[in-house]
């Protein structure tokens, strides 16, 4: 019997719309739940993070200045692509997380639905978090929420795809760009997700995905002066949380951790309120 040899995928990083290997040349073995080898994932370095921040920064103003309607459509388009690949995600998650395909399917479908939920927020944020303020004087005064800039995220370990969606969608839907460190133990669906992004209409650099060690990279996320905000929902270790917040103080990074999922506060946490005054006169 001449069984056909499977062509396996090389898992790389996703930075600025491209799929580079880690500049460090390092990889780590991703094992299945049975302990067997699945793939070598890139062990991203702080320099990969640095490159990702540059990509995210250069993409940010264009992404933020796209209309909210346009961003919503681009995000919805990503959901369409995810749906088309759902079988692949189910297989990967099932294999790497050791759960049944049925359970994996539930996670994948939930992730797609959640992505759609976030996509719809793009043109409703201003009405949720904006206001017209009745100041005492002849001024028109209004407050609008605005994307903060470049935001990092450390995704949760459990539910690798859902965790990734919870990290990325709320950050980018408002016009931020992001660098997300995917689940260290189950990074493969993250890279497949990157392939979805690469073939969608999302501008290069809006979302950058790294795989590697949280313990190694989180402090670099925290101290990077060109990252404005950081979602550390994936960091549970109290001393690491404290270290991240301490390092983040250097540029007064907005650092948040969320327990609730599917919550607009996850979006608003990485937005700034801008208040504008103008006189009213003839």
């Amino acid at each position: 019997m001449n069984e056909r040899l499977k062509v396996k995928k090389t898992y790389k990083l996703f930075i600025g719309g491209a799929f580079p290997r880690s500049e460090s040349g390092r990889t780590y073995e991703v094992k299945g739940s049975d302990g067997g080898f699945i793939a070598n994932a890139c062990m991203a370095s702080r320099k990969d993070l640095k490159d990702a921040v540059v990509a995210a920064r250069s993409a940010q103003s264009t992404w933020a200045s796209a209309t909210a309607y346009n961003r919503g459509q681009i995000l919805y388009r990503i959901a369409e692509m995810l749906e088309g690949r759902s079988e692949q995600f189910v297989k990967e998650i099932s294999a790497s997380e050791g759960i049944s395909e049925l359970k994996a399917e539930r996670e994948v479908l939930a992730a797609i639905d959640r992505w759609v939920w976030y996509a719809g927020w793009s043109d409703k944020l201003a009405v949720l978090a904006g206001s017209t303020n009745p100041v005492s004087g002849p001024y028109y005064n209004f407050t609008i929420p605005e994307a903060m800039g470049v935001v990092g995220a450390i995704a949760t370990e459990k539910n690798s795809l859902l965790g990734l969606v919870d990290a990325i969608a709320p950050i980018i839907v408002s016009g931020n760009t992001c660098i997300v460190l995917a689940s260290g133990t189950a990074p493969l669906s993250a890279m497949t997700f990157a392939e979805v992004l690469a073939t969608s209409d999302l501008p290069h650099g809006v979302c950058n995905i790294l795989t590697g060690s949280k313990e190694e990279l989180a402090p670099w996320f925290a101290s990077h002066m060109d990252i404005n905000g950081l979602d550390i929902s994936g960091v549970d270790e109290p001393s690491l949380v404290s270290d991240i917040k301490t390092a983040g103080a250097q540029n007064l990074k907005r650092i948040h951790s969320f327990s609730k999922v599917q919550d607009p506060k996850r979006i608003l946490a990485f937005m700034e309120a801008k208040t504008i005054w103008h006189p009213i006169g003839v």
Binding site: G137, N141, T275, H278
Partner: peptide, 13 residues
């Protein structure tokens, strides 16, 4: 502040 400056109000964030 557009065409004004240093205006404050309790209703204004």
């Amino acid at each position: 502040w557009a065409n004004t400056f240093n205006k404050f109000d309790p209703a204004s964030p």
